[in-house]
Design a protein around this nucleic acid. Structure first.
Lengths: 218, 218
DNA sequence: TTGTGTTCGTTAGAAGTTATAACACCGAAC
DNA sequence: GTTCGGTGTTATAACTTCTAACGAACACAA
């Protein structure tokens, strides 16, 4: 887990890890209420009873702190999906786990899949976590008992460009299913979290459920 | 169009509208390269050879400028969709127009449909533009020659909560089709614009085309 | 043509931000 | 016990948004 290092090393290292965790905790609280763009290192420091510049002993700058938060968010998502998959969840189960995770902290989801800062590039190890999630998705998309996926130009194209699937033995139909699972669930979730369904009256959960069935069933 | 008022009114009003347009032009340039969160009124003023505070004669604050940009973006999107519909475009044509519009200026799309500022609420007239777009979408979704949409719990639910469709006479299947057109196209577009497909190797255009066919055909 | 008032742009300044530099201190190791 | 690395401090620079006060330019009206 993210707090694993808190219990190892010298007292100095333990203290350092502990303070780092507390900084991230307060940063998450700020992000949850005002969004990532409003995250203020000064405000975090004040909340902790420290002076502003003290935080720079723990994070080189604002970007590094946010990068660390993104890393933790990816880890949390990967843990969630992995746990669901380990519990034997099928595509429906993964979809449910994903939605619950997203609604639990909308700004956390948007930090990963919302508007990116143009210059920013994700660190190397987040791509590892992403491909872990993708593997779980491909496993569930390659399972038995799913609706038919008639051959299509897209499946052919995906089969020819399957580098993103790594060494996963999923067939073209499963590649297709995994991709549209991702894009369709994200389509509903991101619009819901951004509040674009707010005045419309219908229940996003029912739309989400219908989209899950559309992916699972065919 | 947005510049209509530039040519009317007193010389003072004309000058004012002209400066306002120029401010917005420079603001868009900044947003396109660095994102909306990095928009600096001071930098815009400098680019125009003015002092920072001078801009406050034209926009009360940063939020008001951004709100105006959002309004213009909605207007541009509505114009684009409307023009396509007037040209007789079907659902496929609208999808093509939407994608072209989004790729022309990714940050403009993300300003409308990306991560929102938690406190922010869209002004009244943007909802008018949104419903204009929705009407075009419902028209195209209610047309002849589209694939079958078998009855579903979601269609029933949408038929019971169709306030967002206004007085449009679309049947439940068309309501369903319009909604999933929106969410699925947004799902692919937003992930593509955010760069989440970047290292994956496949062509987002082919995925988009396949999703269009999935919505049109059934 | 000569007021008169509105509008515009300026500088000055307050309050906030990120981030660096120099200094003091405290604790751990030798 | 002394030394030394790590931590937190204040001071400071360079930004940001935004307000206030002043001067100048312009439109309009007597």
């Amino acid at each position: 887990m993210a707090t694993a290092q808190t219990e190892t090393g010298t007292p100095r290292q333990r203290y350092r890890a502990q303070v780092q965790e507390e900084i991230k905790k307060h940063a998450w609280e700020q992000i949850a209420t005002a969004g990532a763009s409003a995250l203020s290192l000064n405000a975090v420091a004040k909340q902790m009873g420290m002076s502003g510049p003290a935080l720079y002993r723990y994070f080189a700058n604002r970007d590094e702190l946010i990068t660390e938060l993104i890393r933790d968010a990816y880890q949390s998502l990967a843990d969630t999906i992995h746990a669901a998959a380990a519990d034997g969840a099928d595509l429906r189960g993964l979809a449910q786990a994903l939605r619950t995770w997203a609604l639990a902290d909308p700004q956390r989801y948007l930090l990963l899949y919302g508007t990116p800062v143009p210059g920013y590039h994700a660190p190397e190890d987040t791509t590892r976590l992403t491909s872990e999630v993708m593997t779980a998705l491909l496993d569930a998309s390659d399972a038995e008992g799913l609706g038919a996926m008639p051959p299509s130009p897209l499946q052919e194209h995906l089969a020819e460009h399957r580098g993103w699937a790594g060494a996963h033995p999923a067939d073209p139909a499963a590649l297709h299913r995994a991709v549209i699972f991702w894009t369709r669930m994200h389509g509903v979730l991101s619009l819901e979290l951004a509040g674009h369904f707010d005045g419309m009256g219908f229940d996003p959960a029912q739309l989400y459920a219908a989209e899950v069935e559309a992916v699972v069933g065919g």
